[in-house]
């Protein structure tokens, strides 16, 4: 059963407004403030300026990730993701990259795992095209982590139609449904 802070379950849509800081009450994880689990679960929105002329390089990485996941579907399993959204957009002539992820774990907890995964998938090479990204990221995990935290833009509203449900729970439910239909078919 989906565990939610206020006792709600998946059947009751919920919204949460979040203060400017990104959290209701300051609570530190290992690397800094923790952001609350909302009806749309955990996640982050990282927005950073793309280095001049590197927009195409960033865009091409979409294909790289597509290929990586086609080849190894569970490559990102560690992150307990629901969705990723990568967006490029312009403000006053400069290009910005937005990396939005929705997942079931608190990013602070699995930061090093994510960094290791980024390394192995080459996601960091996308970051290398961003302004201010530490050049020594390969060895300097703390600097990588600081970059992510510095560029994180917390939400001020999050909504879930089926709040607090984890990806694993959804997959379990769908698997059960599949088996159940199969069983009904067998009984025809």
């Amino acid at each position: 059963m989906a565990h939610s802070p206020n006792g709600n379950t998946w059947s009751k849509p919920a919204a949460m407004a979040i203060p400017k800081e990104g959290y209701h009450k300051l609570e530190n994880g290992r690397y800094g403030p923790l952001y609350p689990r909302t009806p749309a679960n955990h996640g982050f929105t990282i927005i950073a300026k793309v280095q001049k002329g590197r927009e195409q390089a960033v865009r091409e990485y979409g294909k790289t990730i597509e290929g990586a996941i086609a080849g190894t579907p569970d490559a990102l399993a560690v992150l307990k993701l629901h969705y990723l959204r990568w967006v490029l957009f312009e403000i006053e002539g400069a290009t910005y990259f937005m990396y939005q992820g929705i997942f079931d774990t608190d990013f602070d907890k699995y930061t090093e795992d994510a960094v290791a995964l980024f390394n192995s998938l080459g996601v960091n090479t996308v970051f290398e095209n961003l302004e201010g990204f530490p050049k020594d990221w390969k060895t300097n995990a703390p600097a990588f982590i600081k970059f992510l935290r510095d560029h994180q833009r917390p939400s001020f509203l999050e909504y879930g139609e089926y709040p607090y449900v984890t990806a694993d729970e959804i997959k379990k439910a769908l698997r059960l449904k599949e088996k159940f239909s199969e069983m009904l078919d067998q009984m025809q």
Partner: peptide, 21 residues
Amino acid sequence: IRQFEFAQNVWINDRNFHELG
């Protein structure tokens, strides 16, 4: 931070480790 504190913070005290809720 990466070994002991991770163990304390996640493995030992994360209420939802392994989706245990």
